[in-house]
Design a protein around this nucleic acid. Structure first.
Lengths: 193, 193
DNA sequence: ACATAGATAGACAGACCTGTCTCACCGCAA
DNA sequence: TTGCGGTGAGACAGGTCTGTCTATCTATGT
């Protein structure tokens, strides 16, 4: 606790920017609005983050970390691989129904920044690859590695598609249909254990 | 052919803007850049489109129309419902591999415009609902209506997720895994015909 | 009490945004 | 040749963008 204020302010800026990027968008959110809502000086923000790009990357990293920790906690409560996958779909179902659901910030980052070399694009892509890897590792407990790879890809696609469908109006049917499809994929022939 | 120039210019502006929105993004593309690339006067653009919002909606409508016509043409060449669904996945596979693939413009519109009341958001949502309906009508030829509804939702999710995965670097595995998952869903138990 | 170091508020610069307006130009009819 | 409707280019207005800078305030150590 040598410099509590510095850390608090930094985190406060990140969380405020997160809320704005989520609700308004990356390009559509200006620095002035972030500092006004966070109630900090512009120089305070620019001391912590050299540019808006850096702030966006930091917001995405913060969000990704929180997401990973929540899934870790849920996974350790689940006994079987099937249940671990189930808890991920559970998480998404609750998220879709939450009051401040505005779609996936990482998908939005990929949409707004078309250049694959841009750090914001890469931060978005990283979270998708991380989630796929998480599911692949779970699936490798119950199927061969190559099958786990393609199956984790399919589950990720269902999740991303469901997030988009939830965004355009049907959160309940989106998670229900995604879960149903996931069950069908996991019970696919060739691995009828 | 009473006013060929007017129509040509209008269409030329739409197509130029389409390329820029696709490559650069909606917010990141300025009016000045559109008119420069289309080589028209600013007033010419504003005579055809009262605002940038109107232009964006028109671009999305143009793109949606072209997409629908392509799928119509492919569908009428396919005999069975399974093959009709297959041609849709074929179309996406070719698109993912095309040189100017930059992800789904409709999904990007949803990402950039968070307000569901915004006409650009609605144009994006409309294309997703239209594609789901198209697949639902095909599926109703081979399964009960309620099942066709949830199955078409699942297929749409796979397609949207595959588009996202193709965007972050694996177009070939994305379409292959999506198609494999789609087969598993269509062959799901309870309808083993 | 005083010095110092860091944080703050807000003005400012320069670029870019959307959208408007003016004025020159061009083809065509009489 | 003269008049006219429509199109062209580009200046302009007013606002917003990111990022910098300066001057003031605050807190702390001695």
């Amino acid at each position: 606790m040598t410099e509590p204020t510095r850390t608090d302010k930094r985190q406060h800026i990140v969380e405020t920017a997160y809320g704005l990027f989520k609700r308004v968008g990356f390009h559509a959110t200006g620095i002035d609005r972030i500092i006004a809502e966070a109630d900090v000086a512009k120089m305070t923000m620019y001391r912590h983050f050299p540019s808006k790009d850096d702030l966006m990357v930091e917001v995405l990293a913060y969000r990704a970390g929180r997401f990973e920790r929540q899934l870790d906690r849920l996974a350790e409560q689940a006994a079987t691989p099937e249940r671990k996958i189930g808890t991920i779909f559970d998480w998404y179902g609750r998220w879709f129904r939450s009051a401040d659901f505005h779609g996936c910030l990482f998908a939005h980052a990929l949409a707004e920044f078309g250049d694959p070399a841009h750090p914001v694009f890469q931060a978005g892509a990283r979270q998708k690859n991380d989630l796929k890897r998480r599911m692949r590792l779970i699936l490798e407990e119950m199927m061969p590695a190559d099958e786990a790879d393609s199956t984790s890809a399919a589950l990720l696609m269902l999740i991303e598609g469901a997030t988009l469908m939830a965004r355009i109006g049907q959160p309940d049917t989106a998670i229900r249909d995604a879960r149903k499809a996931a069950m069908a994929i996991l019970a696919a022939p060739g691995r009828p254990q």
